[in-house]
Design a protein around this nucleic acid. Structure first.
Length: 273
DNA sequence: AAATGAACCTGTTTGC
DNA sequence: TGCAAACAGGTTCATT
């Protein structure tokens, strides 16, 4: 479900609601997620007043005044919603959080590729969980030059390179295809055969694509929604993703679907070289 | 070191 | 209609 824009949309919808509220009680219905979780592991959060809601890569960070943080990753099918405590528990709702305000935060994830975890202030300072992650594409310092230097000594298709979180975070299967279309670069092109201007164009394309997706509330293909259940509408703006067989919006040629590293890639053979 | 493929799960869509 | 295969927004681990 979620790439950087969807997590950022969720973050923005949560922050004004959660800041100042308090973690009261946790109930883990099914702790068999990407990392095992249970009430004991979430104990560092108990009683904590929420200071901020942040994001690193596709991880949501709900931080308390004491410096602990609840870490949530949506995996492929995760949802996080803020609902009244009386709302019935849905199927695949694995974690329920009761807040001081009387509301509840519900984590639901049919495929269970997602993650709910807690770190105390010391864990957070050490930062080991995120140490391997690459550049944030919407932060200062990200540009074509950063991509180009990260690609030095590498080979392989640029699409796979973009989806490697050790290089740049937050760009998943949808936005990799969309960014490459916007930059006019063929997804199978080797990173060793991309010049300085094209890296620059790609850097700009990634930022523009992600920013616009955030502005439009993310992409709801099936079930993405923010904390209040509002769906995104960037899916209507997708140029190539999921549009194999349709006409390219720019040149009219037929959009192709190929498989790279086991994932679908969509591109226009006319616009992308 | 970096690239590839498989694994982790359930649900939905597609094709015979 | 029924059933099986293919596919789905991500990450991590083992193997080349």
């Amino acid at each position: 479900m979620p790439e950087l824009p969807e997590v950022e949309v969720l973050r923005r919808s949560l922050e004004p609601e959660l800041v100042g509220d308090r973690f009261e009680r946790f109930r883990v219905w099914c702790g068999d997620l990407r990392e095992p979780v249970d009430g004991r592991r979430l104990a560092p959060l108990r009683g904590g007043v929420i200071r901020s809601v942040g994001r690193r890569s596709k991880y949501l960070l709900i931080e308390t005044e004491g410096g602990a943080a609840m870490i949530v990753h949506l995996g492929m099918s995760g949802r996080l919603r803020l609902v009244p405590a009386e709302a019935p528990r849905e199927k695949h709702e694995h974690v329920t959080v009761w807040l001081g305000s009387g509301r509840t935060l519900r984590f639901r994830d049919p495929r269970r590729f997602g993650l709910v975890a807690a770190e105390n202030a010391d864990d957070r300072r050490e930062g080991r969980r995120f140490a391997h992650l690459g550049i944030e594409p919407l932060e200062e310092g990200f540009d074509g030059e950063a991509l180009r230097s990260a690609a030095r000594g590498r080979r392989g298709p640029v699409k796979n390179f973009l989806m490697n979180a050790n290089v740049v975070v937050g760009v998943g299967n949808i936005y990799a295809s969309e960014s490459l279309f916007r930059a006019g670069i063929h997804p199978a092109r080797s990173v060793a055969r991309i010049g300085g201007e094209r890296w620059a164009a790609l850097g700009v394309a990634i930022r523009e694509t992600l920013r616009r997706a955030i502005r439009e509330g993310g992409t709801t293909l099936n079930d993405f929604a923010d904390a209040e259940g509002r769906e995104g509408y960037f899916q209507v703006s997708l140029s190539v993703y999921g549009r194999g067989g349709e006409d390219c919006p720019r040149c009219g040629r037929t959009i192709r679907r190929i498989v790279q590293a086991g994932r679908s890639t969509f591109y226009c053979p006319g616009c992308q070289r």
